[in-house]
């Protein structure tokens, strides 16, 4: 147990350092952005370096829920249920942050907080699916049934993640596409090594942050169950 908590401590210190470096890079290391016509871009673009890593991390979190749910149904091991539950909770916070950072950025560039546009809508749908997942966990009392039914829902709910990804290429949309040619031909481009480097450092930082919170959450849940078991054992 002590080596385990030592590992978590090391992980959280590492995360703090990388997060600090990532934030420093965004605000001080990045050169100023110019668009194709040489016009100086608004610094609101910098929120992109938070927005994209958080979005990808939240997809990762729901992928963890999906895999853990399948493994739970297959193996019936209790640990997978704890992992699914923890990843869903952490993932919904990240999904909320995607919407918040996205809205702030949208206000600065498009002038509205919210546009009914497929990509935004599916991101919102993703967030709502996992809110429903958490609601469902609260509504069922028996631990075994709760684990089984929410695993089923975790699998079904994950089907909406690829939809969120595909929708941007299917419909004409205002959401910028940062990499690769867009099917509609309208896209932003992100070139220059310092920009990509910053983005990569931010990706690492947010993945680490996710891993740390998840590790704490799993530890928490296990402790909670230990307490419950001990309470039950009391006369």
């Amino acid at each position: 147990m002590s080596t385990n908590s030592q590992k978590i401590n090391i992980l959280s210190i590492l995360t703090a350092i990388v997060m600090f470096i990532a934030a420093y890079m965004i605000f001080f290391y990045l050169p100023q952005m110019r668009d194709t016509s040489g016009q100086l871009l608004d610094s609101s673009f910098k929120i992109f370096y938070f927005h994209l890593p958080i979005a990808i991390t939240s997809y990762l979190a729901f992928f963890v829920v999906f895999v853990a749910s399948i493994l739970y149904l297959k193996k019936g091991t209790h640990n997978w249920d704890v992992l699914a539950r923890s990843a869903a909770e952490v993932g919904s916070i990240f999904a909320l942050l995607v919407l918040v950072t996205g809205s702030i950025w949208a206000k600065a560039t498009w002038g509205w907080y919210w546009v009914w546009e497929p990509r935004l809508t599916t991101s919102l749908a993703l967030f709502l699916v996992y809110l429903a997942y958490l609601m469902m966990r609260q509504a069922i009392e028996e631990p075994e049934k709760r684990a089984r039914l929410s695993a089923v829902f975790g699998i079904v709910g994950f089907a909406s993640v690829p939809l969120s990804f595909l929708s941007i290429r299917m419909w004409r949309s205002a959401h910028p596409l940062m990499f690769g040619p867009s099917a509609q031909g309208s896209s932003g481009g992100l070139e220059g090594t310092s920009l990509q480097f910053t983005l990569i450092v931010n990706f690492i930082a947010f993945f680490l942050l996710f891993a740390t919170i998840l590790a704490y959450k799993v530890k928490n849940e296990n402790l909670q169950e230990e307490i419950n078991a001990k309470k039950q054992a009391l006369p």
Binding site: V129, A132, M135, M136, A139, S160, S167
Partner: peptide
């Protein structure tokens, strides 16, 4: 169907999934 609050739970689970 096997949960206590099925009438409440069904719309909550169903609506976000059918958005797409």
């Amino acid at each position: 169907v096997n949960t206590g609050t099925r009438e409440l739970l069904l719309p909550i689970l169903l609506l976000p999934i059918i958005i797409p």
